[in-house]
Design a protein around this nucleic acid. Structure first.
Lengths: 171, 171
DNA sequence: CGATATTCGGTATAGTGCATAACAATTATC
DNA sequence: GATAATTGTTATGCACTATACCGAATATCG
């Protein structure tokens, strides 16, 4: 469809009349050109794919990558408040409120008013939160990361991770 | 960070308000734990950094990564319509309209009603568009990608690009 | 041919992510 | 004790994304 007059490859002209059995010509693939050399382009495309697959793999638990990262951080860092967790994840405090509301309403974590500083809320995983996190970890490891390992191989996957961390840290 | 893309708005000064706060005690760093092994996490963080740097490097031309990719595609694929360009970049047609409006209002490209199919708009770079693209390419190559080469080394950068492309293609 | 379906660009709209300003309560500073 | 800073929060705006729908033009097919 959309046969361009300047197109390089055209169907051999069956010109006079339209033949019904002629399947529509698939448009020629566009040339990406320098785009395929642009790191940001591949980076974003890959990121979208990976997040997409993450969501699929962990769909039974209804966790987004961001929510999963929060649960992981809470498990690893008990006794921290909202600001500390949000800062570590690069989430702005105002935007972290609604996110925590969601997790707390699902009984995955709780806010506890600190006795030291009654302004701050100490965040804790609930038992259910720990259970969900454990299940999520397994899904991620066995379905998500395993698939990446299969695609790239363990060595390449490790190298990729290292380079991405370097960029995130030092770029 | 937070480089506004929409208009001539200058970047909000970072230290405008909060200069004197030279904090003495920084809170102990949180443990990332399994987060550092999660590819999607590093992937997104790296992508944000790379886009941020892209915006900085190409700031004189006021081009976002998405706009740059459109100009690149138009240059490489003359005679294509909006749907083809948008599809190639993973942009939905409705969202591509405003984007083209912006580029066209800056006289970087034009929509030309196709004579073959009067529904479709053939997209073309203007002379100014080609000039801006040429300048943008230099900025990206000399400032942006050069910095990545410096950080990773040419071989690693190529390997990274290849793996990201593989993920974007086959994952 | 003519009726129907499809495609194209476009509008409207809703959801989400991200950023800033401002506020009450609390704590730190001097 | 007066002032400044911090914490969680609300409100708000902007950009990006996704879907439904529309008129015009074209394709399909009886």
């Amino acid at each position: 469809m959309t046969v361009s007059k300047t197109a390089d490859v055209a169907k051999p002209s069956r010109a006079a009349r339209k033949e019904p059995a002629e399947v529509a010509v698939e448009a020629a693939a566009l040339q990406l050109g320098e785009l395929s050399e642009l790191l940001g382009y591949s980076l974003k495309r890959a990121q979208l794919r990976v997040f997409e697959d993450f969501l699929r793999c962990v769909a039974p638990l209804q966790l987004t990558p961001a929510q999963f990262s929060v649960l992981l951080l809470l498990d690893r860092n008990p006794g921290r408040n909202q600001t500390e967790i949000a800062n570590t994840l690069g989430i702005l405090r105002p935007n972290f409120v609604a996110m925590l509301d969601g997790l707390e309403s699902r009984d995955l974590c709780t806010r506890i008013r600190s006795t030291n500083d009654r302004r701050s809320h100490i965040l804790m995983l609930t038992d259910k939160g720990r259970a969900v996190l454990a299940r999520a970890k397994k899904l991620v490891a066995n379905k998500h990361e395993a698939r990446l390992n299969e695609l790239l191989g363990p060595a390449n996957r490790a190298a990729l991770l290292e380079m991405l961390a370097t960029i995130a840290r030092e770029f």
